[in-house]
Design a protein around this nucleic acid. Structure first.
Lengths: 201, 201, 201, 201
DNA sequence: CGGTAAACGAGACGGTACGTCGTGTCTTTGA
DNA sequence: TCAAAGACACGACGTACCGTCTCGTTTACCG
């Protein structure tokens, strides 16, 4: 229950230092990419000592990740219109658009960094990937109640189906990330690939 | 007529050295991951000098990439049965299975490395990603001629739709990469998400 | 009054490391000559990292020079007897004797190194060459007061005249550096080369 | 006439190559000092391969030495006037003057290089140092016959006495190498340092 | 209100790896 | 059979960051 702040002995962490670090890390991330976020560079730019950084974060990736998560909008919500499918289309367009900016590069870099850092992987997964799918999940829910989608679909698989192609192109860069692409992905996913006797629509 | 490569002047590159380097790099990649493929370690294990490596490759990532591409099967072909859809299901299962092995970790690492190395990105894209989609493309083609799939689908989008979820889970690790998943992805993609008046099946 | 050096911020240099470096450098200098004093070898032998050495010295020559100066006696003093000329003879013999030892090789090497390193040249000049002439200068002074030498001689020129032949033979090696030589040099310098009407002595 | 068999089998050494090498080495020596005379640089500038150089010289110092000796005047003769002492003064002035030019730097560099290369030391000693003393020796001889100098002087010691101070200042740089200095050295050497009962002059 | 514990900056430390340079040798092709 | 071109093993270079460690100083709590 301990409602006490517990306020451990000694001098408290300097909030200014924390923010200076994160600001510096964000700038370096934007300017030079993940590889530019070295502890030394961050320390120098933030006017902070290296131990001060290591006191709060495990390594440079952790700092970069914290800076990224702290300053990046994950949800990209769309105002609900009558058509959930239309909302989803709009949402995916927004996601793709963000992916073409510097933020997209950072997302890719974070995923890359996650490969060798298990803890970061988890952090990024929970605080960015899964978080950013929430909006999609909501829209899917709406689509279901409005009977715009089949009731027996698996949400997790469906979310992968429509988000993964965007991440895939972000990471591999084998094709554009424009509206035409996101629309087409959604269209294919909705109609389905299989030939069927009586076409509709 | 001499279409010969003209055999440039001077001592030719030592093929033994080349192979020793790639073998050492592959071993290090498997044993310690991409981070373990340092030029110094490769040179030491291959019994080769550092300049010899730098003469042929730009940096450690390039060596690792070359070693990976040279020793990894990309196509994962399936014997054509009567049903193209069944073949596709089988193929995706194989891909997912490979992704759960050490090779999968390497694929992820390569994609990660590609983020900061444009040339590598291209090499990996062309020699692995696109190459490995060829089998899928062939099956898709077969599905079309056998009228198992709609004739108006976009191949590139379709390939992204069915492959991307696998890569996504490989990279983000937010869910399993088992048969149930690949089957489900394929099923959803085939049937389509949209509700439709007259249900089939 | 605090004439204190103000104790610059941060962790102070490790005195043990400094000494280990100089000791290692001195050993290498003695064992393999100046060419053997590589930063890598010094670091390895001293159990110190390369950056630690570079933090304190500009390059390998600077380390060798420091090690040499720190461990080499420069003055070679002689107890004053009644005759300043006799003292000078004794002193020059001592210098020549040292020049035939390992220390002599080092002196030569240092002069050689000084050719390409201006800063080192200055250091060596001030801390070895000029310092080692001080004993000669003192004796000269004594010779003057005792009227053993002409009062109108130029000290700097005189010092060059009697020391230079020793350095010359050290560096060029065209003749012995024994007592006969130093005595002869001194004798010639004292009496003078010129023929004169009435000979003395 | 060229039916001579001497023409040892195969392709003869290319005399042009030899000269190109020496010319390149001399240029590099003048431009960047001895440290600039690397085999690679010489080969590149001379348009010659490295093995071609190694076929004729042991290492870079040998090349530099050869280039230096081939292009440098050693004797610096003076026209004999009535006074040998005057001639000697003039000669020493010329030596000192040369020592203040680029050639002087090269002489110093060669002496420096000689410290670690025994063969070079010998070559330089014989072909430069001793050669350049020949003029002094001749003048000394003349001085003797003209009774300008004492008949019992030791030539080798005397030569060291008057040349060494010049080399000393060249190498250590603790004082000027001007006419005042050379004249003063000679004057001191001639008159002698010792006080004597009856002053002359 | 004075101790004391912990944070702070500065910066040196042992390490690891980097990518480059020059060495002297060796191997091929071409003249 | 030589020369050019250039690859080779070797070894050292000087630099960049890493993550850890002293330092001396500052801040805030607690007794």
């Amino acid at each position: 229950m301990s409602s006490e702040k517990s306020r451990s002995r000694g001098r408290p962490r300097d909030e200014n230092a924390r923010q200076a670090v994160l600001r510096a890390a964000k700038e370096l991330l934007d300017e030079h990419g993940l590889g530019g976020v070295t502890i030394e560079a961050v320390a120098a730019r933030a006017g902070v000592s290296k131990p001060t950084i290591y006191r709060s974060w495990k390594n440079s990736y952790a700092v970069a990740m914290a800076a990224f998560l702290e300053t990046t909008e994950t949800q990209l919500p769309v105002k609900a219109s009558g058509s959930a499918v239309a909302d989803l289309r709009k949402h995916l367009r927004k996601v793709a658009e963000v992916f073409t900016t510097r933020t997209g590069r950072s997302v890719a870099a974070m995923i890359a960094a996650s490969q060798s850092e298990t803890e970061l992987a988890k952090a990024f997964r929970n605080h960015f990937i899964l978080a950013s799918r929430e909006e999609g999940r909501k829209i899917l829910q709406r689509a279901l109640t409005q009977k715009e989608m089949r009731s027996d679909i698996d949400f997790d698989v469906t979310l992968d189906l429509i988000y993964a192609p965007l991440y895939f192109r972000l990471l591999v860069g084998h094709g554009n990330l424009d509206n035409a692409f996101t629309d087409s992905v959604l269209e294919h996913a909705l109609i389905g690939l299989a030939e069927r006797p009586q076409k509709k629509r």
